[in-house]
Design a protein around this nucleic acid. Structure first.
Lengths: 208, 208
DNA sequence: AATTGTTTGTCAATTAATTAACTAATTGTA
DNA sequence: TACAATTAGTTAATTAATTGACAAACAATT
């Protein structure tokens, strides 16, 4: 199971494999070749084999891949074997929407929500209390929080991120239209820049 | 202003340029070199020049780029010169969150929201009525809808997409964890696969 | 058991994307 | 006005990513 520098392009395809394999598993398909997978998922068969080889290769010549095994392997590669503790910072519409997404079923347990607005602090979303930001440090440390979702407005994002890092969070899922400056190279930052996505759509729409 | 096949990598960087240039403009910076921009935005100076050359090149040797001009040019490239009419399908937590995002300020005017759930139809979010899906065809045609945001559950996504295409929508912004099958090659589909993003984060978290 | 067909893993070839080097235009200054 | 400094545009070199080809391994069949 080699692991010297897997490219970002490959990594970003893994969740899609995982998604499709799960579906196949649910449909009772227990064997698949790279060619068949190619037809379904839209990557070339060669690319699929190359991608999987990055992590050791899980197939068998003349047979293909066992769907369940491959699903489990990719799950493992994606770190879906343990549960991560998460919190949401900013309990506005987006924060509340994410709280209701139930990422818990994928192994991401929501442990708390935070906001500065006294109109929402004290409320509960899906049994999770919205707490004041004053409690952030304590909660991160007590509950051993791994991942924080930043759903504040863009002006608050950087200072919130600084606090999160200071208090020991390991990864940030950033929903604000800001590129966070994080000095600590150990901290993972994953952005969901909705406006960038919409502008990309707009680009292609204009091209027509 | 050449335009023979700009690569996806370049296109997906454009919104970031646009974002940073806007910020500079607001800060009263009116001139910038590729080197300075590189320090701020994190792409190499060479890449920045290469990117811009795809669209004709807007700089001047010995001077750099005029921030306002470049901002406007990129805005134009991204199609931000006209207003697009949008609707949201699925008025659950996410749909409501997106309605409150106010993409109108970027030229994306929200013209309606739709849901099948009678508990939410009739309600208003930011002065936009949540309508029953029965009215979808009529509204798309009357209001000349360009873009639909799909925020339904994943099981409804494909059939909603089929209807949207049939009724004349030009682009779909898909928030469901499904890869929509659209035959009509003229239709733009832009995905926001939140779970894929979270699993990518998870991958890097596991790597540490 | 032998043979045919399938399919991965591997390696090579190709294509795409990024980075570096260079040239010529322009700015700013003495 | 002349000259040094700056900097985009351009071309070339490098690196990365994708695709194609094929041998070895295995499965299925006779």
């Amino acid at each position: 199971m080699a692991n010297n520098k897997v490219s970002m392009a490959v990594i970003r395809r893994l969740p899609k494999y995982h998604r499709y394999l799960k579906e196949m598993l649910e449909n009772g398909i227990n064997r698949i070749s790279s060619k068949e997978l190619s037809d379904i998922i839209g990557f070339t068969a060669s690319q699929i084999r190359q991608d999987l080889i990055n992590f050791g290769g899980f197939g068998q010549q003349g047979y293909g891949y066992n769907v369940e095994d491959l699903y489990n392997e990719i799950g493992q590669i994606l770190g879906l074997v343990k549960t991560y503790n998460t919190i949401i910072i900013g309990a506005g519409n987006l924060g509340q929407a994410l709280a209701n997404f139930n990422f818990g079923s994928h192994g991401f347990k929501l442990e708390g929500m935070f906001d500065i607005n006294p109109k929402v602090t004290g409320l509960r979303i899906r049994d999770i209390e919205i707490m004041d930001m004053d409690l952030l440090e304590e909660e991160i440390k007590n509950k051993n929080i791994d991942i924080a979702f930043i759903c504040t407005n863009k002006d608050a994002a950087q200072s919130v991120a600084d606090d999160l890092v200071k208090f020991g969070v390991k990864a940030i899922w950033n929903f604000t239209p800001v590129d966070l400056k994080i000095n600590n190279g150990e901290i993972i930052v994953e952005n969901v820049h909705l406006i960038d996505s919409l502008l990309t759509l707009s680009y292609f729409l204009k091209e027509k």
